[in-house]
Design a binder for these strands. Structure first.
Lengths: 224, 224
DNA sequence: AATAAGTAGTATGTATACAAAATACAGGAG
DNA sequence: CTCCTGTATTTTGTATACATACTACTTATT
């Protein structure tokens, strides 16, 4: 039969998505710096594709807030001022509170276990010095909560907001002094969820995000 | 899809943006119905442009949540289930609460005046029978609040969320019985903002959105 | 009659060609 | 020296061509 051949072809992704993911990664990792121009021809030759998928990927980055384009001038990696960061974190605070509240209502026993694993995993990661791994472990902890909201649109928006501050988060995670605080806050969130104490978990999450905001703002101020 | 779909070429804008706006309007107005396919060639010939700007516009609609594309199959106007609507309104409730709280902190005297004008304007519009005008007046009332948040990103997200339920909102606004309630709620919001009673205005706004949610859900249930 | 294979037609994915606008720079006028 | 301007170059905007996958219909086989 010809069945298996078709299965192999299923692994196929449109180039625009491959390009989109590649550029997004590069921006988040800081390989493409804020303000850097995204020139279609240059990117096309660098990635070995034509301009068409590049252009479509840029349109997508644009709506994700990772790129800004000026008509007839082109696109560049979005710059972030302190004000932009405040705006993003203000929204993120509201949505993280919503998410953790929903999670508190919905969490199953198995979710709590996953959360506990993620918690321990984060704690362990801070004993190493691999900042990316720490950031990843933190993402995974919060992801368990996001998934429990049973609201895909909300998950999507929270991931997007997280993306927008990722560059700066990695910076502040280099400061090892904050690890104990972060771990403690994660533990408190976990405890509240276990006890189904909705009001309290929202309060803790709120504090957790505000803390982040101050850290990130310090980073930005230093960079300027 | 036999409507005309004409482009407004007056503005000096890249065609992708013109096409994007045109298609978005058509979807919101219901000229393009949920589930309807968005075929590039067909749209291109109908709008008198090539496929390129159409494709880029579709990528943008996709990230706005107004279109869904399946690789190698094409795009279609996003369908909305009752669950999707719940999800959107859950988020909207959280962000509207945030917005009205911020507005309460920031509102200047002139903003209050603008809000009062919008309030009266809405009231007046309900005495006519032009549903679109009523919807527009409602949008303008809430826009004054959004603008006062001084958070462009939040404004953007709220506008996007509003877009996603616009089709159904216009439906429920056809029910004239609800006008007094809506007017009363708007008045309460205005009064609270005038008195700078932040806690209360958030409570009222929350109620306002929950009310909408129930109405919209009824509409969807009727349609199924 | 039902199903499978083959085939024509259609739609999307990608590349490239051409047009128009923006930018950079050189040279000349004041 | 500064500013303006014209031209060359670069870059984006748009259209089109070609390749490939999908759809639907027809035909053949059981």
């Amino acid at each position: 039969m010809t069945e298996k051949l078709e299965l192999n072809m299923n692994a196929y992704l449109p180039l625009r998505d491959v390009v989109f993911n590649t550029l997004r990664e590069a921006i988040l990792k800081g390989e493409l710096k804020p303000g850097e121009r995204l020139m279609e021809l240059q990117l096309a030759s660098k990635l070995g594709v034509s301009r068409t998928p590049i252009r479509e990927a840029i349109r997508m980055l644009e709506l994700e807030g990772l790129a800004v384009t000026v008509p007839r001038k082109g696109a560049e990696v979005a710059r972030m001022t302190e004000k932009d960061m405040e705006d993003v974190l203000q929204i993120r605070k509201a949505l993280d509170e919503l998410a953790v509240g929903l999670a508190c209502d919905n969490l199953k026993e198995e979710d709590l276990e996953k959360l506990h694993v993620a918690l321990k995993n984060f704690e362990a990661s801070t004993r190493g010095h691999d900042v990316k791994r720490i950031a990843q472990a933190d993402v995974e902890f919060h992801d368990v909560i996001y998934q429990a909201t049973d609201n895909p649109k909300l998950v999507n928006m929270l991931n997007n907001l997280r993306e927008q501050i990722y560059r700066y988060r990695v910076e502040y995670l280099k400061n090892e002094d904050i690890y104990p605080t972060l771990i403690h806050e994660h533990e408190k969130i976990f405890d509240c969820l276990k006890r189904k104490d909705k009001d309290e978990v929202i309060r803790v999450m709120s504090y957790h995000v505000v803390n982040q905001e101050m850290m990130v703002k310090n980073i930005i101020r230093e960079q300027e």
